[in-house]
């Protein structure tokens, strides 16, 4: 990483059972991948409140990666399916804010798939390098596209 080149920062929300262990396995297997993701561990990807994602983007992250177990393999039966529903809606909303869809990604990685997670981080880092910094101020706030509470939309999804 040279001093001047732009390096994106990704906040990764990884579930305790599959994807966090996939990240551990990637390290244990010495699979080198972009050091741009910083991990926040949650018990299940379904714990990822859309507010967390917005918070991360607002606080300077260039992208957010949410990772969970493969559908059908969730430690909590079907938490990841709930995540998927929320994620689709959240993406829809972010697009309206003018945020590129590549900035928030959802991947499935089982505990044995260190390589899958590492590749996802590499790919996303490349995409974000191409997009450049997020600049929340200019993109969202100054154009007055700032987020209203996401609760209403989330409520909608969870009811459905």
């Amino acid at each position: 990483m040279s001093d001047n080149a732009y390096e994106p920062v990704i906040v990764g929300f990884l579930c305790n059972w599959c994807s966090y262990r996939a990240a551990d396995l990637a390290g244990t297997s010495r699979l080198h991948y972009a050091p741009n993701m910083r991990v926040v561990r949650v018990m299940c990807s379904a714990r990822v409140d859309p507010q967390f994602v917005l918070k991360a983007l607002r606080e300077g992250a260039d992208g957010v990666l949410i990772a969970g177990c493969h559908p059908g393999e969730c430690h909590y039966v079907e938490g990841n399916i709930k995540t998927l529903r929320r994620y689709e809606l959240l993406k829809h909303m972010l697009t309206q804010f003018g945020i590129e869809p590549e900035r928030v990604q959802l991947v499935w990685a089982s505990a044995s798939e260190g390589n899958v997670l590492a590749k996802a981080v590499d790919r996303m880092t490349e995409q974000l390098r191409a997009l450049g910094p997020l600049r929340w101020q200019e993109t969202v706030v100054q154009q007055d596209k700032r987020p209203v509470s996401t609760d209403a939309v989330v409520e909608e999804v969870d009811r459905g």
């Binding site: 906040v11 926040v40 949650v42 018990m43 299940c44 379904a46 714990r47 990822v48 409140d49 859309p50 507010q51 967390f52 918070k55 991360a56 606080e59 430690h75 909590y76 938490g79 709930k82 929320r86 609760d151 209403a152 989330v154 409520e155 969870d158």
Partner: peptide, 27 residues
């Protein structure tokens, strides 16, 4: 798992050791 915590529109549910406050601060 915390699925209900993320979904509660009133913020009435907390998950011990994974509270909103803890995660927000971590971010």
């Amino acid at each position: 798992c915390g699925a209900c915590v993320a979904a509660c529109p009133s913020g009435a549910i907390t998950e011990a050791h994974f509270t909103d406050e803890q995660i927000m601060s971590e971010i």
